[in-house]
Amino acid sequence: MEGLKIIIIGAGIGGLTAGIALQQAGYQVQVYERVQELRPVGAGISLWSNGVKVLNCLGLGEAIANIGGRMNVMEYRTAQGELLNHIPLQPLIAQVGQRPYPVARRDLQEMLLTGYGGEIKLGHDCIGVEEDEGGVTAIFANGERDRGDLVVAADGIRSVLRPYVTGKPSALNYAGYVNWNGLVPVSPELAPADCWVIYVGQHQRASLMPVGGDRFYFFFDVPLPAGTPPEPEQYQEQLRGYFQGWAQPVQNLIERLDPQQVARPEIHDLSPLDSYVRGRVALLGDAAHTTCPDLGQGGCQAIEDAWVLTHYLKSTNLSVMDALERYNRERRERGNSIVRKARKRAEQIHGKDPEVTRQWYEQLGREAPQSVTNAIADVILGGPLH
């Protein structure tokens, strides 16, 4: 289909990637964003090979390689620092055909903004849509309206347009844990510069992952009741308490982090949706499949969405609605599967059933590295670019 005007609501990873892909396909694209200033949420993100392959196809391969960390090894360690498993990643890279690139979210956002290059209308809070036979109109809180052939709702975890698509409100599910995350300079007192290390114990995790600019993206996971106050001025003291007695690199990390630069989300996901599409409106990214971060696939799934949506608009010519329904069928199966797998993984890691978590700790110590990389490869190769 040619000559379409496409309205994108949201300038996050999914919205910007969709903007790039749809623009390259020759469509007229307009991106709207609720906030007055674009600031990425969270410090870092693991872009596995399925997401990177889409960026390669969009001409961003060199750019993502320049900002991505060179992650050659994964290590699991006990809370006290004993090595459970050393997992070289080269077999995974060879199996799936692309290196993963953990990145700082700000670097990724700037790369996508440059790749898009078009106008982003900030301060436009989309409050609804109106459809008729000929098109769809996005309605904004400031009184503005814009009409197009379709609307891409990439408006995130608390999507305003999701209830329009699904026909009902959808509550977020608390995954049971809080995640502190940020960036610190690479240092041998923390971890080798090319190693993603994960310390596990007491249903908690502490992790360091290399990103571009000689930095580690770090996170701490702690199961806590929902609504526990954040108290940024207490972050270091709290983490010292939660991770008392853990290995020295974990203690070094706690001392080196800057509490003012640390994000602390309570982790939620969204139950799998029956549909990602209604008429001329398509959900994309977290608006469609908010997922626990325990598979590292949230950003990758948004990027896959953008690719598949563009593919069907380009490759089918029956109608916009037909193309969106094909997108819906493919992405609903993939996205909902990832949501379920990530939720199961989150529960396994964070002690929902303490016996299941204990067995996982034992499994980490005896599992063959190839089994770990095969499991990651299965998730990666389930995407649209094999």
Rank of each mutant, 00 (worst) to 15 (best):
M1L: 04
I8Y: 04
A11V: 04
Q24H: 06
A25L: 06
A25Y: 08
Y27N: 14
Y27I: 01
E33Q: 13
V35K: 11
E37W: 09
A43S: 14
G51F: 07
V54T: 05
V54K: 11
G69Q: 07
M74Y: 14
T78E: 14
Q80G: 11
E82R: 09
L84K: 03
H86G: 00
Q98K: 13
Y101L: 09
A104S: 15
A104N: 08
T114D: 02
T114P: 00
G115A: 02
L122G: 02
L122H: 09
I127N: 02
D132T: 02
E133W: 00
E144T: 15
A154R: 10
I157A: 14
R158G: 02
R158T: 04
S159W: 09
V160D: 01
G167P: 03
S170A: 10
Y174L: 08
G176E: 13
P210L: 06
D214W: 06
F220L: 12
D221F: 11
P223L: 05
P225V: 03
Q236K: 15
Q238H: 11
F243T: 10
F243I: 12
Q244R: 13
Q248T: 15
Q251Y: 13
H268Q: 12
S271K: 15
P272G: 08
V277K: 10
R278V: 09
G279Q: 09
L283N: 11
L283R: 11
D286H: 13
E304M: 05
L309D: 05
H311C: 05
L313M: 02
L313F: 06
K314Y: 03
S319Y: 03
V320P: 12
A323V: 03
R332Y: 12
S337C: 09
W360I: 00
Y361H: 09
Q363S: 03
V372Q: 07
G382S: 15
L385Y: 07
